[in-house]
């Protein structure tokens, strides 16, 4: 085989691999659309919101398909987690860069990396055996929105903290020298110079953390109690959209199964929108 022909075959092979790789996402979207088609046709648009409850059956006519309580469950758990994790994560990053002695900062950063590497099912197991009994002690049943939000906080804290820490590390030395030369105090430098300079990276971290919290399944499935209801207090058991899919796929048939694909599609749309936003704000952070 001549040299240029080898090169040509190589390129053909690479192009084909690239095509397969690129096609995966289309395949995912296509199958979600195909599978959710029956339910979207039989249930229509408004019933996802107006039906009195979530009591799905295999034929849409007899079932009730209100997704809103679970949507609230997802948003409440993720919202509380983001609200708790963001300040803690920013504080962690500031601690590492500005307040901790270098040795402690290195140890702390390594620890956050380890936290980031713990799989969600292990967080779920720990939440179930350590947090839920603790909450149950004060307010039965223990499996609750609070437990879910707490576990999610722990899970997204490392994501946000590591990205914020990297963003702080990337602040140009010039800014810092300028701040020091102007005699700015440490809080003045952090608030006035470092945070504005690292804004994009920090925001990216928060968005990715939010995406992770909304898309998380196992941990919330294990600690939230999985009762379909709109939460009214922190101690109410809730069911999230992701947990609902994991629970009901085992036996769902017909329109019920299709309805689960609809909720999957909705989840995917939300998370992809968040990731796309994060990607726009800080190119290159998405895989960290």
């Amino acid at each position: 085989m001549s040299r240029s022909r080898t090169d040509r075959w190589l390129l053909v092979g690479l192009r084909a691999s690239g095509a397969v790789t690129g096609a995966v996402v289309l395949l995912v979207i296509a199958f979600l659309l195909i599978e959710s088609w029956p339910a979207s046709r039989h249930v229509g648009l408004s019933r996802w919101i107006t039906d009195p409850s979530w009591y799905p059956t295999s034929s849409a006519a007899d079932g009730r398909f209100n997704l809103v309580p679970m949507l609230w469950g997802t948003l409440a758990a993720a919202g509380i987690a983001v609200a708790l994790a963001t300040p803690l994560a920013l504080l962690s990053a500031v601690f590492c860069r500005f307040y901790a002695p270098p040795t402690i900062a290195r140890f702390y950063r390594r620890m956050i990396q380890l936290l980031a590497g713990i799989p969600s099912v292990v967080y779920g197991l720990w939440g179930l055996t350590a947090l839920v009994p603790l909450i149950q002690h004060f307010r039965p049943p223990g499996t609750s929105l609070l437990a879910g939000a707490a576990v999610l906080t722990l899970m997204i804290l490392p994501t946000i903290a590591l990205l914020a820490d990297a963003a702080l590390a990337n602040v140009p030395g010039d800014h810092l020298r300028a701040a020091a030369a102007a005699g700015l105090s440490r809080p003045g430098t952090i608030r006035g110079v470092v945070f504005p300079a690292a804004r994009a990276g920090i925001f990216t971290g928060i968005l990715l953390g939010t995406g992770r919290a909304i898309g998380e399944t196992m941990a919330v499935l294990m600690v939230c109690g999985n009762i379909v209801q709109t939460p009214t207090s922190l101690f109410d058991p809730i069911r999230t959209l992701t947990a609902n899919i994991a629970l009901e796929m085992a036996y769902a048939m017909g329109d019920h199964r299709s309805a689960l694909f609809v909720s999957g599609l909705a989840l995917m749309a939300i998370v992809i929108a968040l990731v796309a936003m994060a990607d726009r704000i800080g190119r290159g952070y998405a895989y960290a």
Partner: peptide, 24 residues
């Protein structure tokens, strides 16, 4: 196009991969 589709794929929640894997 390949990059964009990979970026999108990176954001898909794992349970949705489960749904896809099951159906496909």
């Amino acid at each position: 196009a390949i990059r964009r589709s990979l970026d999108t794929l990176a954001g898909v929640p794992s349970i949705v991969f489960g749904l896809f894997g099951y159906a496909f």
